[in-house]
């Protein structure tokens, strides 16, 4: 069966996600209205400005559609996408979706001058770590997390990649660095990294 992954196109870094999905041979589709959710088998919430995303989710009445979709399909969020997936944040201007049991702080590392590329160690399972260099742009910090959240990557003592059930949140931008492992993990059921195959490893 051919699957199609939606990329939320309200505002932000959606282009590079389309490019990444194309690179790994998966169809992608720009999601802008509620009926678009019928056409997709997974969703990416890209980076961008969380104030803008939060407002437009309300304006175009997409919150419930995403919450419903999350019950049965994989969702991945990067940067502002991670912020939108969180349970709570330190800023009343943004209303998160509450999908991931995490508490985040926006722009935790400062302004653009502090944006950087960093070495991140991705723990695939107990035996296997993968070292990646990925880009943080005005990045959020995951300050706290609940019991069902699995930390799969850390940077300077803070989690930067978290996984729970069918949800993946990243504080950085693998799509900028051409890193396809996370897209494969969530959306490519042929991949050795596919989340349904890895679950038992993480749970162990």
């Amino acid at each position: 069966m051919v699957i199609t992954i939606g990329v939320l196109e309200l505002q932000g870094g959606f282009d590079l996600h389309h490019k990444m999905l194309k690179k790994i041979g998966i169809n992608s589709f720009g999601v802008k209205v509620e009926t678009d959710f019928k056409k997709i088998d997974g969703l990416i919430i890209p980076g961008g400005e969380s104030t803008t995303l939060s407002l437009l989710l309300d304006t175009f009445k997409l919150r419930n559609a995403i919450l419903e979709f999350a019950k049965s399909y994989p969702i991945m969020g990067t940067c502002a996408g991670l912020i939108m997936m969180s349970k709570s944040i330190d800023d009343e201007r943004v209303k998160p979706l509450g999908l991931l049991d995490i508490i985040v702080k926006r722009n935790a590392y400062g302004r653009q001058v502090m944006s950087s590329q960093e070495k991140v160690i991705f723990a695939l399972n107990k035996e296997r770590n993968i070292e990646l260099f990925s880009t943080f742009i005005r990045a959020p910090r995951i300050k706290d997390y609940g019991n069902d959240v699995i930390i799969i990557a850390k940077f300077k003592d803070y989690p930067v990649a978290v996984f729970s059930r069918n949800l993946l949140g990243l504080a950085f931008h693998p799509e900028i660095d051409g890193i396809d492992i996370f897209h494969r993990m969530m959306f490519d059921n042929y991949s050795e990294f596919y989340y349904k195959k890895l679950k038992e490893n993480y749970a162990a």
Binding site: E9, L10, Q11, G12, G13, F14, D15, L16, G47, G48, E49, T52, C79, A80, Q112, V113, M114, S115, S116, Q117, E118, K119, F133, T135, I137, R138, H173, I176, D177
Partner: peptide, 20 residues
């Protein structure tokens, strides 16, 4: 680590797409 590469600069521009 590295914080002034051209890719990081373009990265912020990418995040501003579709906006005002």
């Amino acid at each position: 680590m590295s914080n002034n590469s051209f890719e990081i600069k373009v990265g912020l521009a990418e995040m501003l797409k579709g906006g005002v």
